[in-house]
Design a binder for these strands. Structure first.
Lengths: 205, 205
DNA sequence: TTTGACATGTAATGAGTTACATGATTTC
DNA sequence: GAAATCATGTAACTCATTACATGTCAAA
């Protein structure tokens, strides 16, 4: 259900067409909440149907009719209500950890592959997040700039501070995953090639 | 799709009835992969239908007929194949971070509530995970004990090491969430009560 | 002339959640 | 006699994923 609030959050910065939303989404909110186009467009329509967004058909003649969305007062108030609601505790559900806990069933070589994969993925995530964090800090992030323009300078620090805080957490999380995978690779080294009688060898007692 | 592998993983330790699975699940695998009963029972049946589990109806007279499940060779090989598959990269999707990035739309007091909630939740998670990790390390964890009994002592280290490694990562992750929430509370202190012209006050430029 | 960006989706499927249903037995 | 534990699910729903569908315009 958060997809709608991710969209309201993004649109709270400025009005956008559906296409812009789908583009901007990837460059900003997606770092905290991923969603594909096939979820974005229908949800925009639903939000409009419920009066949380205003739609304006922008017919620029030639091109396909685009729609410009703007958050309504009802939309803002839904956003505030959501922020004021307790956040349901997140369920543990990461396949990488599930696999790791049962690496006994595979060879050390395979475990190493999975860990290297994990390392590469989160190192790349970390890089992207650090980059985004930097453009927030120096206020060069385009979506943020447009957002700040609407508020007095006295508010800017507060707005930026929370976003940087969120990104700090994400960068840390990615770095932690990288470190974990590294420790796993070291453990693989210590365990050696796993030859022997173990479950990994396919024999059971 | 990981629910089936979570079940195969658990049952790879020893055979169990559906009820035992649902109980043990909560005490072991659930730390890495949460699932409610309503997902467990139907999935056990599906796994049996596909030949990855053997079922034996245990009719102990009085009680309702229980079913004892045992992993088949096909089941073990499915488990190994899954471990050998690349793990799809995880999507960023934590409502706590989404909210934090848009705390500008609420008061500092509300932000503080959300952060305290986050802190409490993950502190409790950390406590539980540390406890579980300790019982793995000293081999007193009942599910682990039964598992180890089936293998020669030379294999024990390897089996335990990966599990402890997985739990290490989870403990770290929980600790990191706690630390993040703490930094957020400090930020809330620095930002003060957020009175003023900001979006949180309900006025837009 | 082909590629890529613009622009908006639908359809089918799969995964996960919540709430409910049922009845026996053991323990207090 | 009531409550907890044993034992197994179904049904309805929401949420998310994957794959596909359609067509225009601008630039190389």
């Amino acid at each position: 259900m958060s997809i709608r609030f991710a969209l309201l959050s993004l649109l709270s910065g400025r009005e956008m067409t559906g296409y812009e939303v789908s583009q901007q989404f990837g460059r900003s909110v997606a770092h905290v909440w991923h969603a594909p186009d096939s979820q974005i467009y229908p949800e925009l329509r639903r939000l409009a149907d419920e009066g949380l967004l205003d739609v304006e058909e922008v017919d620029d003649g030639a091109r396909a009719a685009k729609k410009r969305y703007r958050v309504t007062d009802a939309g803002l108030s839904a956003l505030r209500d959501w922020l004021a609601e307790p956040t349901p505790g997140r369920r543990q559900r990461d396949p990488a950890y599930l696999k790791a806990a049962y690496f006994e069933w595979t060879t050390t070589a395979t475990a190493r592959e999975r860990l290297q994969e994990h390392l590469d993925f989160h190192a790349e995530q970390q890089r992207m997040l650090e980059e985004a964090r930097a453009t927030l800090l120096d206020r060069s992030h385009p979506t943020l700039r447009r957002r700040l323009e609407r508020y007095p300078a006295s508010e800017h620090e507060r707005i930026v501070a929370w976003k940087v805080f969120a990104y700090d957490g994400l960068v840390d999380a990615a770095a932690r995953e990288v470190a974990w995978a590294r420790r796993g690779l070291e453990l693989a080294d210590r365990l050696g090639d796993g030859l022997g009688d173990g479950p990994a060898a396919g024999r059971q007692a």
